[in-house]
Computed example of a mutant assay.
Amino acid sequence: MTIVRRVARPLLAAPLIQSGVEAARHPGAHAEAARPVLNQVSGPLRLPNDPVMVVRAAGAVTAVAGSLLALGRLPRLSSLAIVATAPVVQPVEPFWKEKDPALRREKQATFVKTLGLIGGALLATVDTEGKPSVAYRGRKPRKAAAAAIHDAREDAAESVEQARLSGRKATKQAKKSAKQFRKDAQQAARQAAHDAGDSSRRAQRKAGKLAAKQAARAHKAARRAGL
């Protein structure tokens, strides 16, 4: 706890403790001032139909909560209890209906002070002393989960895109390979036909030479026989 909180909490709690003790000990005036509010909330909140008893109990709660706030014990919960009992312990008097200027100014000053006390108590309910609040700790896992889902979606989209590009690349490579295969096959066929043609022409020339040799030998044999 910092020095500021050690000083500010007792200063805020002092008038709250005093008003709570006053309401618990002398609830009459508070009960009359809080009667309109109690008539509206006693049914829904199932409160006793006894304004004096309700004011006494609320005054005791305010005094105890103010003491805990001054000591720095359960400050947020204590402040919340003070705010909850404020409509009964710190009733708002309609100063604007007062015709006496002096009384109107006095009631108006009391009204403004009461608003200041309630505002201070409200601030104390959200004072986490620099620690993350429950709402923040609850939002942090949700943000982390949302970020993880977003990253997973991006990774999945990137994987799909890579697979699509890979498939397109593989298709192009397959088409290129098939085209090269057809080209090589056609070239091999032409080479084979050319080789076959060369072999046929060589065979014809060889047969012609052989026939010429046989004819020359026959001619020589005929000449010898004539002689």
Results as ranks from 00 to 15, higher is better:
T2M: 03
I3M: 11
P15T: 07
P15R: 03
L16T: 06
I17W: 08
G20E: 05
R25Q: 09
H26L: 01
A29Q: 04
H30Q: 07
A31E: 07
A33E: 05
P36T: 00
L38C: 05
N39P: 04
V41F: 00
G43T: 07
A60R: 13
V61T: 07
T62I: 00
A63P: 00
V64R: 15
V64E: 15
A65I: 00
S67D: 03
G72C: 04
R73Q: 09
S78W: 00
A81I: 00
I82S: 07
A84K: 12
A84Y: 03
A86S: 07
E93P: 05
P94Q: 12
F95Q: 07
K97W: 10
D100W: 11
P101M: 11
A102I: 09
R104D: 00
R104I: 01
T110W: 11
L115Q: 10
G119H: 06
G120Y: 12
G120F: 03
G120H: 14
L122S: 10
L122T: 14
A124Q: 06
V126K: 02
D127R: 01
V134P: 01
A135I: 15
K140N: 04
A144S: 11
A147Y: 11
D151G: 09
E154K: 07
D155W: 03
E161H: 09
Q162A: 02
R168Q: 13
A170M: 10
A170H: 14
K172C: 10
K172Y: 09
F181N: 14
D184C: 11
A185M: 10
A185D: 12
A185G: 08
Q186N: 14
Q186V: 07
Q186P: 05
Q187A: 15
A188Q: 12
A188F: 15
D195F: 10
S199L: 15
R201E: 13
R202S: 08
A203W: 08
Q204P: 00
G208V: 01
K209M: 10
L210A: 13
L210F: 01
Q214M: 12
A215K: 11
A215N: 01
A216G: 11
